[in-house]
């Protein structure tokens, strides 16, 4: 089986979809001839032509607005927003239009747009190339939000998104775009949406996260084991709808939970996860649920590593839950 990084896995999923679905259209800034600034669409322009791999004018609202029109017409658009920091000109189109089309048309017009966008920090990108705005979209009824942590899931989840009829925000963790490598089949396969994955089993504390934070949690779990603490690590994979059952099952076993994400803590997705777990697990919890998150600041440049959650901060939170 070939080894791929996340970029290659995404590219492989896109190539499969473009070959098998004539209505599939890729559009975005620099996605055509150039193959995208991260090369996720590399080679697709040559293979599928300029009408199906469209280099658009530089306007995110137009990329999503026209993708919506294409989707309700019956196409299967796959727009790319170059960095999720630049998604905000299209916020209205995503929140008020794309996510609402099925509902407000009474189901007459599904809007199967799958937006791909790189997310997260750790690449020395400063404020405008590092943000994690997932919570804004998880708060939007009508969307699905997906954020893989490795190449196998990236390809399988993306192919799942492309085969269903709801609009999706597919966020790709750019810090590990190339660093995360693994075996990925060349052929098509799917990873089920809405299902979390237990990436490491443990007994005392449940660590919950997604995207680039999964490897941070694994690193923390290994270090914790060295000092005699057993952690279970769960990769959410789909953020909306999220897999509460798997989390509840784990927390019922461990009695403790730490939620990790890069985005600011206040009203971050960790707040929703913690609240949902309190509703279901209050009786078994041995300690308050800890949140390890980015600071409630704009994303910084020079102090990026201090801003981002790391294994030490996760271990600090693990200790707090044990010492409470």
């Amino acid at each position: 089986m070939p080894t791929m990084n996340i970029i290659q896995a995404v590219n492989s999923a896109l190539r499969i979809q473009m070959a098998r679905e004539p209505k599939a259209v890729i559009l975005g800034e620099d996605v055509g001839k150039f193959g995208g600034v991260f090369r996720a669409t590399s080679g697709l322009y040559d293979e599928f032509g300029e009408d199906r791999v469209i280099d658009t004018p530089l306007a995110e609202a137009g990329i999503i607005g026209t993708a919506i029109g294409m989707a309700v017409y019956g196409m299967r658009p796959i727009p790319e927003i170059q960095f999720s920091d630049f998604i905000f000109p299209a916020f209205d189109q995503i929140v008020n239009e794309m996510a609402k089309f099925r509902y407000r048309s009474g189901g007459q017009y599904p809007c199967p747009v799958v937006i791909r966008t790189p997310v997260g920090g750790g690449i020395r990108g400063g404020h405008y190339h590092s943000q994690s705005p997932e919570a804004l979209f998880i708060h939007t009824p009508g969307l699905k939000v997906v954020l893989p942590s490795n190449p196998y899931d990236a390809k399988g989840l993306l192919l799942s998104c492309l085969q269903q009829d709801d609009p999706v925000l597919f966020m790709e963790p750019k810090k590990i775009y190339r660093a995360s490598r693994g075996e990925v089949p060349d052929e098509a396969y799917t990873v089920e949406l809405g299902k979390a994955k237990i990436v490491r089993e443990g007994e005392q504390v449940t660590l919950i996260g997604y995207g680039a934070m999964v490897s941070i949690m694994e690193e923390a779990a290994i270090k914790a084991e060295e000092i005699g603490i057993s952690c279970e690590v769960i990769d959410l994979r789909t953020l909306l709808p999220f897999d509460l059952e798997t989390l509840v099952e784990s927390v019922n076993k461990t009695g403790r939970a730490v939620v990790v994400h890069e985005a600011p803590k206040t009203c971050g997705f960790g707040a929703e996860l913690a609240s949902s777990l309190y509703e279901r697990c209050l009786g078994v919890l041995e300690a308050p649920i800890e949140r390890v998150a980015g600071f409630d600041t704009p994303f910084p440049y020079s102090l990026e590593h201090e801003y981002m959650p790391n294994a030490d901060r996760v271990i600090g939170a693990i200790r707090k839950t044990l010492e409470w």
Binding site: G65, G69, Y73
Partner: peptide, 22 residues
């Protein structure tokens, strides 16, 4: 119809792009 004002113009263009591409 969208009460947002002007969002629908991109949809019209997208529908037409779909007509052309398909």
């Amino acid at each position: 119809m969208s009460s947002c004002i002007a969002t629908q113009i991109s949809h019209a263009v997208g529908v037409a792009m779909g007509m052309k591409i398909s």
